[in-house]
């Protein structure tokens, strides 16, 4: 009796739905693979061109890597004169590292201050900081440049590091993160436990903000690493120039001196640290971006 019932069960609709689902999923995956290829294609092309000589690049487009990778690398490594890339790499690394650490720390500190303390004009301060975010840096750069000249602050690392610390976008991200993740009870508990205000921030608040700190550390590192505008305006000494400025110089060289293989190699080297950072910290980035959205 039971087996009869078992045979009577209709499976046709379920099987049809299964087939439909498989087809749909396959199509979606094909589309996603296609998007990924588009995204990665230009990186691959960059790599291919970094392995080719100037003459090969001039002769046309190909997807097959050539043999001149180490030659190009050597040329880049030994560059001197107006674009010593090795120094550029070092300068960019020092500036981006220090500025990203300081930007992240002080933005977190400011956000914490505005979030955790009650003071007159608190709302105004927050709105004012957000307002600055709306103003593109190009608008204020003339005044900024003049100020730096007056203060004799050009041609120094600090001129690229210190002003960057006031980062309204980072502040905004941090305060949103604090609102979602830091109950003020924790701050009060820490006060009751006997810690000073700075100790509370460093020992209790910062560890809780870890995902947000990781994200902003990466973002501000990348932003500083890629920054071309301010270094071009403020740094004129060759040995202090950053990688993007040197790259721009190389690209603007006249036809006779132009070496496309070398330029591609410099681009390849300049995006390499950024790619590494994303590759190793993608997990932290995803965690940081979605943190606070679900109560954990």
């Amino acid at each position: 009796m039971e087996s009869n019932n078992y045979q009577l069960i209709d499976r046709k609709a379920d099987q049809a739905a299964k087939v439909k689902l498989t087809i749909e999923r396959t199509l979606v995956y094909i589309f996603l693979v296609f998007l990924t290829i588009i995204c990665l294609f230009f990186f691959y092309l960059l790599f291919v061109n970094a392995t080719r000589s100037h003459a090969e690049i001039q002769s046309g487009f190909t997807l097959i890597p050539s043999k001149h990778f180490f030659e190009n690398f050597q040329k880049m490594w030994n560059l001197s004169g107006m674009a010593p890339v090795r120094k550029g790499l070092r300068n960019s690394f020092i500036i981006a590292s220090i500025s990203s650490v300081l930007t992240t720390y002080f933005s977190a500190l400011t956000a914490y201050g505005v979030y955790a303390y009650n003071f007159k004009g608190k709302k105004f301060v927050e709105t004012f900081i957000l307002l600055i975010m709306m103003i593109p840096s190009q608008v204020s750069s003339v005044g900024f440049l003049e100020m730096c000249n007056e203060m004799h602050w050009t041609n120094q690392y600090w001129v690229l590091i210190v002003p960057g610390i006031a980062a309204p976008a980072t502040f905004f991200y941090m305060i949103q993160h604090l609102r979602a993740t830091l109950p003020l009870d924790l701050v009060e508990a820490s006060r009751m436990d006997g810690s000073s205000e700075f100790m509370t921030f460093n020992r209790i608040v910062l560890p809780i903000m870890k995902p947000a700190l990781a994200v902003q550390l990466i973002f501000s590192f990348v932003a500083s690493w890629n920054n071309l505008y301010l270094p071009t305006l403020l740094i004129t000494k060759t040995e202090l120039k950053t990688l993007p400025t040197m790259l721009a110089l190389l690209r603007s060289a006249d036809f006779a001196n132009m070496d496309n293989g070398l330029i591609y190699m410099v681009i390849f080297i300049s995006i390499f640290p950024v790619m590494l950072v994303y590759l190793f910290l993608s997990r932290a980035i995803i965690k940081g971006v979605t943190s606070g959205s679900v109560k954990g």
Partner: peptide
Amino acid sequence: IAMVFQSYALYPH
């Protein structure tokens, strides 16, 4: 003095 909070306020990390 010490205080016990309604939300426990334990340091999560």
